[in-house]
Structure formats: structure tokens, C-alpha cells
């Protein structure tokens, strides 16, 4: 039932909002806590759906630090219209299992229409692929780099997508969809001890038929190494104009260069992509060896 909703996302609407939350790791101390981008997704969800927002995490229930970590999200359930405590569904899985089938099954069961997530987690398989994989598996739309939700009704949602240099693009997305929240979205509210302590974590362990182990086959032969910040390419801007220098300094590196290729066959497109990845030294020159570059 479409409802006129000019007021903004805070009013109650018939959507079922869900935020996927991962366990974070503090960049300095390495301590577990809420992941910063996921916290922004929760903030966006709270502003959209209030205390109706559901949280979900797929992880190892035996992890002693998990509760502490997830309390960082549950502690955000304050300052809302109603005083309900937060609830989080924990989908138990082992370290070598794949989270995507579990999450997909849970999302289908709960009838979620808007699934919010951060773009990148802080540890584990933090590539940000989960959103894409879920959208693929469920056949949903996905929007990444979302800075704000402008409007939402039962059929569609209007979001602002963050582009480099503060630009924004307005997108209209059909529900259900996955929304990956950008780091320029509204900063997450403080996690308070009281609501965090009262928040409930419910274990949901009957999602997949028993014995159907969804082992993560992809990561078996991965190599793990600590993440390093990629060096920023310096671009010397010779300009006497302060505005140009500022624009150059503020530009995201991904915003510059590139070319638009159209009307290519899939093979040609793949070739172009591989060439680009080689040029960027993201894949090794000789496709033979999988040894890390030196």
C-alpha cells in the first residue's frame, strides 16, 4: 500500500528494515567492537525504522568476545520514539562455513525489504562482497555508497549515493534491496551501556536443513596477510589557483582517469579489465604463478 511520505524517513512506514552487522576490530588496538561502517548502517536503519530495526549477525556463538562486540550495536537503541530494547538474531556458523546462505535464508524468512550493511568490514572477510552475494542470491537490487535515505515507501526507496568530492546522485530503487552505507553517512550514535546490557541476542539455528553444511569453498586456498593502506599516488598540481589545488587535494584517486568503454563483447571487456588489473599491479603479470609480487 503506497503511502504519501514527503516528511522523510523518520515516519513509520511499511518496510521491514534489517541491518547486517559484523564484528569489528579497532584499527589501533585490534580490540573487538562495533564496526564503524556497520554502525552507520544501524544508525541509518534506526532513523528509518526506529526500534523496529532488526539486527542480524552470522558468527561463532562460542566466541567469548562476541556478546561484547555485538553490544556495541544493541547499545544504539536509545533516543527513539519507543523505549523497546534492541534485538539481534545470531545465526550460528563455524569459522569455515559460508555466511551468505544463512543470511539469505534468514532474510527470506523474516520478509526483510531493506537490508542495510556497511561497505566493508574491519576483519575477517571484510571485502564488502556479502552485500553483492546476497543480492545475487536473492535476486534483489543493491545500491552501494549510500549516504542517506531520502524517502521510503512499500515499493521503493530513494537514496542519495555518495560520489567523490561531495557529489551526490539520487537513486530510486525497487524493494526489496540491499543498501551498502558509505562512510559519509550520518555518524552513528553513541552506544550506551544500559541499552547494550538489556539488548537481547536470539540464536536462530534452524535456518538450513540439518547436515547441509554450507562450507565456504572459496576461502580454503586463500592467503591471509594483514591489510596495508595502499600508497596514495601523488599528483603534483601546478596551479596558482587555490581552488584547483584544493580540488586536486580533495579528489578521491578513484575519481580521476579511466575511460568509458561501450559496445564490447564480453571477451573483449574481460580482456580490458585484466589489462587494467595488470597495469595496476593487482594481478601478477604472468598468470602462471600465484606467488605474491615482490
Amino acid at each position: 500500500m503506497p503511502q504519501p511520505d514527503a516528511k522523510g524517513p523518520s515516519s513509520q512506514i511499511e518496510v521491514k528494515a534489517v541491518a547486517l552487522v559484523s564484528s569489528g576490530r579497532h584499527p589501533v588496538s585490534g580490540r573487538p567492537g562495533r564496526a564503524r561502517e556497520d554502525a552507520r548502517a544501524v544508525e541509518m536503519g534506526l532513523m528509518l525504522a526506529g526500534a523496529d530495526l532488526s539486527l542480524v549477525h552470522a558468527g561463532d556463538p562460542e566466541d567469548a568476545l562476541l556478546r561484547e562486540c555485538l553490544e556495541g550495536y544493541l547499545g544504539m537503541f536509545h533516543g527513539l520514539d519507543d523505549s523497546r530494547d534492541g534485538t539481534l538474531s545470531l545465526l550460528p556458523m563455524g569459522a569455515e562455513e559460508d555466511a551468505v546462505p544463512l543470511l539469505a535464508a534468514w532474510l527470506e524468512r523474516t520478509g526483510a525489504t531493506i537490508t542495510l550493511t556497511g561497505q566493508r568490514a574491519e576483519c575477517g572477510e571484510g571485502s564488502g562482497m556479502v552485500g553483492y552475494l546476497l543480492a545475487e542470491q536473492l535476486g534483489w537490487a543493491i545500491a552501494t555508497g549510500v549516504a542517506a535515505i531520502e524517502r521510503c515507501d512499500a515499493q521503493s526507496v530513494t537514496v542519495l549515493q555518495a560520489l567523490p568530492q561531495g557529489q551526490r546522485r539520487r537513486l530510486e530503487i525497487q524493494l526489496p534491496c540491499v543498501i551498502a552505507v558509505d562512510s559519509v553517512a550520518e555518524a552513528p550514535r553513541q552506544s550506551a551501556f544500559g541499552p547494550a546490557r538489556r539488548g537481547r541476542i536470539e540464536t536462530v539455528d534452524d535456518l538450513l536443513p540439518a547436515g547441509e553444511a554450507c562450507l565456504d569453498v572459496a576461502n580454503v586456498d586463500w592467503q591471509w596477510q594483514p591489510a596495508r593502506a595502499r600508497p596514495k599516488r601523488l599528483k603534483v598540481v601546478k596551479s596558482t589557483n587555490a581552488r584547483d589545488r584544493f580540488k586536486a587535494a580533495a579528489a578521491k584517486s578513484s575519481a580521476s582517469g579511466g575511460q568509458v568503454l561501450t559496445d564490447l563483447s564480453p571477451e573483449e571487456a574481460a580482456e580490458k579489465l585484466i589489462d587494467y588489473l595488470r597495469a595496476e599491479k593487482i594481478i601478477a603479470d604472468s598468470g602462471q604463478s600465484s606467488a605474491p609480487d615482490t
Binding site: 544504539m76 533516543g79 550514535r189 544500559g194
Partner: peptide, 8 residues
Amino acid sequence: ITLEKGET
């Protein structure tokens, strides 16, 4: 304010 409302 800090522990219950999270409004430090």
C-alpha cells in the same frame, strides 16, 4: 545521560 541515553 551517558549510560542510559547515550547523549554524552
